[in-house]
Design a protein around this nucleic acid. Structure first.
Lengths: 261, 261
DNA sequence: TTCAACTATGACCTAAGGTGAGAGTCAACC
DNA sequence: GGTTGACTCTCACCTTAGGTCATAGTTGAA
């Protein structure tokens, strides 16, 4: 009888690696009720209590609730099996919902990066003009289409974006200076060629399996430049920019089409 | 000015799909504070509130705390990026811990099944004897080894286990009846042969890449039968069973060894 | 006027303990 | 015997993100 080891709260807490308060709580909840043999009201735990506590901690680590653990400790193997199965299913559900949260976060971060890169592109154009153009594009092309092409900009690093923007700005500014010159002049056509190659370069970075912009597409693009809010955007670099650019681009594309025939 | 739409609590709650109490709570917490323009003290929400609320709900779905959301709503894109990154890392951690919980549950269920099958095997032997033998084996072979071979029994279905047990019990009982007979008698050797084939069959189900029990191993097995608690287990089927079995098994194995030479 | 529907606040509840207060207990040391 | 430090007890309040209930005031319609 002398070998019946008993533990005090703090002894058991150290042994099992839980706080004293946790033991109080388990007592309170009827999960692990100690003896109270001493007349000072102190809790005393036996070796058996230790074993049960360890079992409790295993279930706790498996994310069972206190109430569930209480049932599990008295459960038959069949109920136990069922409970484990249910808990596993719950955990699998949670895993899936966490997975989709992670996906959402990644999408959000992607979006954030894309928008940052777009800001770099439009940094030198007044915000109100950009906003008008943005709203127009969204309503004309549809949210989904816009969303999709915005996402493409997430593929670029900040450095790449800066470089692309610098390249494009350089061409645009040089082109603005040629407003008034004949569109078939050597300088204008050389700049148009630069522009064509530049947007090809950019598209190759943005679009997967990019195969090149056809001259027909380039003509379409040229025509769209003259559209209301788009025009306003272009005119920021000089009055008459939109028309000048449109004409130069079409001349460039048609000449190349003839040449290739 | 007349087009400035406002919503009451319940209108907003229906629009956004949250409870009125949630809106009260967000007000209380300073997350979404409505206007109180009417002198009846009623909350009124504007269109802007609706937009913010939707943003809040997105963050809530991503498992951000209220306090974190409050910061996010005022955050710059850099902070936002950082917060999203941290949240993602937290979720990845959680995912991992849930994964390991699921693994633990599967291991526990496996263990449960193994023990159930073992119970079927030992069902006709008094529990105290089984427990003594079990304790002995654990201390002699080590917990890990025992655990490993216990796990093997999880591979069996209940039906298979029943069948294997029936087969083994039949042989054992028949063999018990031959106690006293000479070990080189035809009946004893035929039963021994059955036993040899039976444990080969069983092992093939339990052990991966099983290649058969050698006659040398069979002799080792025979000798181990005479060990204290193991002996007690065997003697349950009849006095002198252990020695009789051991002699018969060794005779069987040695004769086969000679024959194969 | 009366009724239903809507709104407000406040108090208490959840799970699994954490934290602190105030008081009693124990063993050792002086 | 007194003191000190280490333990122990219970009680009450705190945490998250709201839910539930009670009580009371307000509004619009019949």
């Amino acid at each position: 009888m002398a070998d019946a080891k008993v533990y005090s709260v703090s002894q058991l807490s150290k042994l099992a690696g839980v706080s004293v308060k946790t033991l109080h709580y388990y007592d309170h909840k009827g999960l692990l009720v100690p003896m109270r043999q001493l007349d000072n009201g102190y809790r005393t735990y036996s070796q058996k209590h230790l074993v049960i506590l360890q079992q409790i901690l295993i279930y706790r680590a498996l994310d069972f609730s206190i109430e569930a653990i209480k049932n599990l400790l008295n459960a038959k193997s069949q109920d136990l099996h069922q409970a484990l199965l249910e808990q596993k299913m719950m955990l699998v559900d949670r895993q899936q919902s966490i997975s989709s949260m992670i996906n959402s976060i990644e999408a959000t971060m992607n979006n954030l990066k894309a928008k940052k890169n777009l800001d770099i592109f439009f940094q030198d154009i007044p915000k109100d003009k950009v906003e008008r153009w943005d709203a127009m594009t969204r309503s004309r092309a549809g949210e989904d289409k816009v969303q999709e092409s915005v996402q493409n900009f997430a593929k670029l690093s900040e450095q790449e974006t800066q470089e692309l923007h610098a390249e494009s700005l350089e061409i645009t500014k040089a082109f603005a200076k040629t407003i008034g010159q004949p569109i078939d002049s050597k300088e204008v056509q050389e700049l148009t060629d630069k522009h064509y190659k530049s947007i090809n370069h950019m598209s190759s970075l943005l679009v997967e399996d990019f195969t090149g912009i056809s001259f027909d597409s380039y003509i379409q693009m040229a025509n769209s430049v003259d559209m209301s809010e788009m025009k306003e955007l272009c005119e920021h670099y000089g009055e008459g920019y939109a028309e000048h650019a449109r004409a130069a681009m079409i001349y460039y594309a048609e000449r190349n089409l003839r040449r290739n025939k």
